[in-house]
Write a protein that binds this DNA or RNA. Structure first.
Length: 790
RNA sequence: GGGCGAUUAGCUCAGUUGGCUAGAGCACCUGCAUGACGCGCAGGGGGUCGGGGGUUCGAAUCCCUCAUCGCCCACCA
């Protein structure tokens, strides 16, 4: 056995085999195959805004296990990789890393270089400079990501890669937008918009997170305005007194007897002296505060509902920078306007303090303020509460809820209970999908607006790009029928200044990877995809939005199966740190220490939907399994090749094969229902009893050249290597190369038919095993060497 | 507030439709140079299956209830 090394080792297998697989195109997708011969995967494009942690390795391994199984099972696997590098998260990352901020009013500086260390105060740069830096940083990160995935052994076809900011994705995204526009599924309107005042952009419902923060209840004295009871006080409890100037009404529950007589009458706000109606609405909670609330434009999403359903006026005071507007709102008298001057231009926080002072001075606060903690809406990655600001935005109109729920039912979920997350989300949807972001590193809307003779934008007559022009950037490209010098001039045009929400592009990943816009032949071979693997926290965003887009474009699901992975926790049951540097869970360090196969072994222990503990123990076990596989294989192969006519005939040999066939059946069935964990458990447990019992029992026969034993050892090894191949691609490939031609990862998945099917009793092996155990027990008890004769 | 999931040995987890004395690996203890592996091999101790009820000849498994942890969703007055 000249191919078998003297002292086999798992060190260095990763770099050797990843290069070999790349050179041989082992995982290259063969597009001559037809749809039914193909297994296609809508791989999650990881966000390129930081560092991949061990949790990413875990979930991406899960997908790779499935990909490798189906490839060996005879399917041609379409396994692309994308990088999600557009959008707010990348911008935030680049701002922090380089200490720069985008100011679109600045001119491009071709010589700009970011400082080596980020300065305390951000340097303002032009939009092209900013986008350039985003592109530079994401390229670096993508290179590191590619390297990590290759070391981890993902069997991705790297020729099928895309980035969500790349030309192809921009084009797909813009074509998708135009298609929605054609079918009237998208519209643009001015409406109250959830707004992050730090990032200065709109945020969608799907990106919200509630956080508990401290707040203070203040009891404000309003006064009845008319009738015989004019001047009587009305106590309103609020946590946002700074919005008092934006108050447009008071509201109580229609059944609340305390306030029923007041409905239809008016009240006057303290300090600002605005006359506001007292109205009734079911959403008012008689239990909260004094049972009557002030409606402001806009303090929260309930205010928006009240404002819309009760047809109230807008009296907005919070600006997009989180400060109160310089101009007072409508409806105030002279004294009110004077009071407003005290708070105009202040931040929301400063304004709150000042308003409370003014109210206290004028005796409009009742009792002591009361501290509470309450949930407040944030952008999920933001640091200040969201405000609600009126703004013009593009919206995608959602299909009816029952249609969306039916799609959720049609989809096969692994595990099934994850469907509930989808249903919860659909049932809680409010309004449509705001896809507009006031940002820079994103896909622009392929839209311009005419400017009339007076220099006003004509919003309701947008000029849409032609499909052939795409991708376009309306801030530099010129619409048909105009000249470049007409930009932003009367009788000219203006580009839509905004970019699309990152999910507006990510919702098209099956179409980006499948080349919907430029390769219909490929699309028909891979779409709808077989599998969408993803994390559960983005069911409401990525999964849901992909279903919506596919529903509109194809009236079909975008994928047949959704495999949902869990979180990875550290041993203290906390979420893993994403911190930089040498964190103990840095994936490269972990792979160097234990080997990639060991990392994959650990990952394989996490069933779909289950949270996984980061556990060095399992890494150690996986590492030892890989080493054991090398040594056991070396031993089996050391007996030399049996003659071609050799066949298993002895009862023990047939029994072990009988058990092996059962393992093959179980592992196959497990994989088909995405339970790779069960597949490796069965395989591993058989492997150890094969080593400890079977190999020991046949040693003497094998040394004597018994053909039945030799044939059985080799047949079993071949099957075991292939059962392990999806999990331990490096070590199995190494062993395979010692005695077989071609890659094990293109070999066929083991089947019952390749092993002897003579009916035997598998129990023979068990009985022999227990006899062996008794003998060993006696030897151990006698403190004798196991070699001692019985 | 509504929902989903988890709770089995010190740790990480199996346990199929209820059925032999509840399993594995790690850790721990003891032993063994054995024609591949000492990163090995053999043996051993260790659990009232989160608590409490119930159904049943029989419950880790089915029902009710409570508790703890995690997550998802929810209209912030």
């Amino acid at each position: 056995m000249s191919n078998v090394p003297e002292k086999p080792s798992i060190e260095g297998l990763e770099s050797r085999w990843r290069e070999r697989w790349a050179a041989d195109g082992t995982y290259r997708f063969d597009r001559t195959k037809t749809r039914d011969e193909i297994y296609s995967i809508d791989t999650p494009p990881p966000t390129v805004s930081g560092k991949l942690h061990i949790g990413h390795c875990c979930s991406f391994t899960h997908t790779d296990l499935v990909a490798r199984f189906w490839r060996m099972r005879g399917k041609e696997v379409f396994y692309p990789m994308g990088w999600d590098d557009n959008g707010l998260n990348t911008e935030r990352r680049v701002q922090l890393m380089l200490g720069i901020a985008c100011d679109p009013s600045l001119p491009y500086d071709p010589d700009f270089e970011p400082p080596a260390k980020p300065p305390d105060r951000p340097i303002h740069v032009s939009r092209p400079n900013f986008v350039e830096q985003c592109a530079r940083i994401t390229e670096q990160l993508e290179e590191a990501y590619f390297d990590l995935w290759s070391t981890l052994g993902l069997s991705v076809d790297w020729t099928q890669s895309y980035t969500t900011i790349g030309e192809h994705a921009r084009r797909t995204s813009q074509v998708g937008f135009l298609r929605l526009h054609e079918q009237s599924h998208v519209y643009r309107t001015e409406s109250p918009t959830l707004w992050d005042v730090d990032m200065r952009t709109a945020v969608a419902q799907a990106e919200l997170a509630d956080r508990e923060i401290p707040g203070t209840y203040h009891k404000l004295r309003f006064y009845r305005a008319d009738g015989p009871s004019a001047g009587e006080p009305l106590i309103i409890e609020t946590t946002r007194p700074e919005l008092l100037a934006a108050c447009v009404a008071l509201v109580a529950h229609p059944d609340d007897a305390r306030y029923q007589p007041l409905f239809g009458s008016y009240a006057v706000t303290p300090l600002f002296n605005a006359r506001v109606p007292i109205v009734a609405h079911e959403l008012a909670d008689p239990e909260k505060g004094s049972g009557i609330a002030m409606i402001c434009t806009f303090g929260d999403t309930t205010d928006v509902t009240w404002w819309r359903e009760l047809s109230l006026p807008v009296r907005a005071i919070v600006e997009k920078d989180g400060r109160l507007s310089l101009e007072p709102p409508s409806g105030l008298d002279d004294a009110g306007r004077a009071a407003y001057e005290q708070i105009s231009g202040l931040t929301v926080k400063q304004a709150q303090k000042r308003v409370v002072e003014l109210l206290t001075e004028s005796g409009h606060i009742d009792g002591e303020p009361r501290s509470i903690t309450h949930p407040v809406k944030f952008w999920e990655n933001g640091s200040r509460p969201l405000e609600i600001v009126p703004n013009r935005q593009w919206f995608i109109r959602y299909p009816p809820k029952d249609v969306l729920l039916a799609r959720g039912n049609e989809l096969r979920w692994w595990p099934d209970f994850m469907r509930v997350r989808y249903e919860n989300w659909v049932n809680g949807l409010i309004g449509d999908w705001n896809i507009t972001r006031q940002r820079f590193f994103g896909v622009p809307f392929p839209v311009w607006y005419p400017i009339d003779d007076d220099g006003n934008l004509v919003h309701d007559q947008p000029i849409l790009a032609r499909v052939e022009q795409l991708p376009v950037d309306p801030s530099s490209d010129v619409p048909d029928g105009y000249d470049a010098d007409q930009r932003d001039k009367p009788c000219g045009f203006a580009g839509d200044p905004d970019v699309m929400d990152t999910w507006a592009t990510s919702s098209l990943t099956p179409l980006i990877a499948g080349h919907w816009v430029d390769d219909d032949d490929l699309l028909r071979r891979v779409f709808p995809m077989d599998l969408r693997p993803q994390a559960h926290e983005i069911i409401r965003t990525w999964l849901f939005s992909t279903v919506v887009r596919s529903h509109f474009e194809f009236d079909a699901l975008p994928f047949a199966n959704a495999a949902i992975s869990g979180f990875v926790f550290d041993p203290e049951r906390k979420k893993l740190s994403k911190s930089q540097g040498n964190s103990p869970d840095d994936p490269n360090a972990v792979m160097t220490e234990y080997g990639s196969d060991a990392v994959r072994y650990w990952a394989a222990g996490g069933r779909p939907g289950m949270d996984v503990a980061f556990d060095r123990n399992q890494l150690k076990v996986g590492r030892r399994l890989a080493i054991k596989l090398l040594n056991a294989s070396k031993f089996v192969l050391s007996f030399g090749e049996p003659p071609v006519t050799a066949a298993p005939t002895q009862a023990l040999d047939l029994a072990v094969l009988e058990q092996l066939v059962a393992v093959v059946d179980e592992a196959t069935a497990a994989f088909e229902s995405y339970d790779y964990t069960k597949a490796i458990e069965r395989t591993e447990s058989f492997f150890w009893s094969f080593c400890d019992d079977y190999v020991e029992l046949v040693k003497s026969r094998a040394y004597a050249g018994d053909e039945s034993a030799l044939a059985t050892l080799r047949a079993t090894l071949s099957v075991l290597l292939r059962l392990f191949a999806p999990f331990l691609p490096f070590v199995t490939e190494e062993v395979w190369s010692w005695w077989q031609n071609g890659s094990i990862h293109r070999a066929s998945w083991p089947a019952r038919s390749e092993l002897p099917t003579e009916s035997t009793d598998g129990a023979v092996f068990d009985i022999a095993g227990s006899v062996l155990a008794e003998i060993r027990k006696a030897k151990t008890a006698a403190k004798k060497s196991l070699r001692a004769d019985v």
